[in-house]
């Protein structure tokens, strides 16, 4: 195919993302914010465009490599918010560290057990082992486990939206209103989208969620690549 329009990929992705982010910034309600998440819609709209016009993914990936390359230094730069959160919570660090670790371990363990029950192929269970972490980290961890990074990313994004919508309902049902408990739970299990929605609604819980999200990024990176093969060995 001698298509010469692929160079438009990067400018169009940037323009679309900025437009979606602008619209998202105009919403003020916590759930509306989660439902208009710019990353989620950018991926859905671009995927829909490629499918409607019957365009292949490979040249799109090839021409947007510039963006994908920048993801690596961006992940290194995540050390900055991680550090900023670290020095904020020295007092509660141990409890938050333990509960975050439990959350990360639980996510990998529960997903592996469900995959085993459904007799899922290895590629699929590897794609679902690292869901308790922010999207860029899951891309790398899933790739290292031999899974499908884009599938893991989609699951993580949708789980974030789910957490933003139903988080409060769950806490009412299990009768927990403590800001630290809510924040750490949402930050670990529902990452960026859940955290952003919590910050708009309950700033104190939102602050704990930011800490937990940063910590679970680090913990997932350290724990999941070791834990997942061990679980597979046992199952």
């Amino acid at each position: 195919m001698t298509a010469s329009f692929w160079w438009l990929s990067v400018p169009l992705v940037i323009a679309l993302f900025l437009a979606l982010r602008f619209l998202n910034a105009k919403t003020h309600h916590a759930i509306a914010k989660a439902l208009t998440n710019p990353v989620c819609w950018a991926i859905v709209l671009i995927a829909a465009c490629l499918m409607i016009f019957k365009l292949p993914y490979a040249p799109f990936a090839e021409h947007t490599k510039v963006l994908s390359w920048l993801l690596e230094p961006a992940i290194v730069a995540l050390a900055l918010p991680l550090y900023q959160q670290f020095i904020h919570v020295k007092k509660n660090l141990l409890l938050i560290l333990i509960s975050c670790s439990l959350g990360v371990i639980n996510a990998t363990l529960v997903a592996s057990i469900i995959c085993a029950l459904f007799a899922a192929p290895a590629e699929l269970s590897a794609s679902l082992a690292s869901l308790s972490v922010t999207t860029p980290i899951t891309l790398l961890v899933t790739d290292a486990l031999g899974g499908i990074p884009s599938l893991a990313a989609a699951m993580v994004i949708f789980i974030g939206v789910l957490g933003a919508i139903f988080g409060n309902l769950i806490f009412s049902l299990i009768n927990i209103q403590n800001a630290q408990a809510k924040g750490v739970a949402i930050g670990t299990a529902c990452h960026a989208i859940g955290t952003a929605s919590l910050i708009t609604e309950q700033p104190k819980a939102g602050a704990f969620a930011s800490v937990a999200m940063a910590l679970s990024a680090l913990l997932s990176a350290l724990i999941v690549p070791l834990l997942y093969p061990a679980i597979q060995h046992l199952i």
């Binding site: 938050i96 333990i98 439990l102 679902l128 699951m155 988080g167």
Partner: peptide, 26 residues
Amino acid sequence: IFIVVPLTSVILIGSVIAYFKGREND
């Protein structure tokens, strides 16, 4: 997985912290 993984994690983490810090909004 989409439902069970985040649900179990939220309940687990929420319960552990509530055990040490109390259930009420402090």
